[in-house]
């Protein structure tokens, strides 16, 4: 009987350690090439290629990312909130400089919102973004010429970003490692140590319980499975150049418009 109580206590400890919070509203996964997510099909291949190529170079040199996304429906949500959530989930721009930007277009609702990452707020203040939308994007959208509007707005934004980083770009060898998807630099301290201790203790307790009650059946089966699948990692096919967000954040800055 006592053994059962101890097992229960053990389970309770695990349970209290792993309570998680509810999931958020539905936000799409980023596309394979990351820089264009064209659900509403507003761009042709050539335009997408242009945006992706330009971004790849920009990211290499500055860590900045300018993402274009279109959605078929906002599902009744505020476009600004949707843009914020997408930005949060995709992590646009480098983590160090938060220099990302998201242009979100909902053609069926006739709304656009440009969300500017914290690091680009100085380069692209709300009024400047507002004017770009008003003068370079909306006039095209009004004539259902989405592609031209997007490209024209994209170019205006790129130009501002280029100017901002113009002086820095002369420093040829900008450390690319800075902008890679590195690990979070979590503070390694007591907390981390305790994690390790907890895991070790957990394993010991697991082993004791397993060998006590199941004659080590669980342990053996884990080892057997590990052997069967171990070492057979799928070799990543060469030539795939999937892009990812750098982990940048935004805080609701930017501007929007309707047509």
């Amino acid at each position: 009987m006592k053994r059962k109580y101890i097992l229960l206590l053990f389970l309770a400890v695990i349970f209290f350690n792993t309570i998680s919070y509810a999931a958020d509203i539905n936000i799409p996964e980023p596309s394979f090439y990351f820089y264009v997510y064209d659900e509403a099909n507003l761009l042709n291949d050539e335009a997408e290629e242009y945006i992706i190529k330009t971004n790849e170079e920009l990211y290499k040199k500055t860590g900045a990312q300018i993402v274009i996304a279109s959605l078929n429906s906002l599902e009744g949500e505020d476009i600004r909130l949707v843009a914020l959530k997408i930005f949060e989930k995709w992590g646009i721009g480098s983590r160090e400089y938060d220099n990302g930007l998201l242009m979100l277009i909902a053609p069926n609702e006739g709304e656009i919102w440009v969300e500017v990452g914290y690091g680009l707020e100085g380069t692209l203040p709300d009024s400047k973004v507002g004017r770009i939308i008003e003068d370079s994007i909306i006039p095209y959208f009004k004539e259902d010429n989405y592609q031209e509007g997007i490209i024209s707005g994209f170019n205006e934004i790129i130009q501002e970003v280029e100017e901002e980083y113009g002086i820095q770009l002369k420093r040829e060898n900008i450390n690319e490692d800075l902008y890679n998807i590195g690990e979070y630099d979590e503070s390694i301290g007591l907390f981390q140590g305790i994690r390790v201790i907890l895991i070790v203790i957990g394993i010991i307790v697991f082993l004791i319980i397993d060998f006590k009650f199941f004659n080590g059946f669980l342990t053996y089966s884990i080892f057997l499975r590990g052997n069967r699948y171990g070492g057979s990692y799928r070799s990543s096919s060469s030539g795939s150049r999937r892009n990812k967000g750098g982990g940048g954040r935004s805080g609701g800055g930017g501007a929007g418009g309707k047509w």
Binding site: D126, G130, R131
Partner: peptide, 18 residues
């Protein structure tokens, strides 16, 4: 004035976000 309006609208959205 229109610049200020954009700045105010953006700031309002920032306030909402934060």
């Amino acid at each position: 004035f229109s610049d200020l309006q954009y700045e105010l609208a953006g700031t309002e959205n920032r306030i909402a976000t934060e």
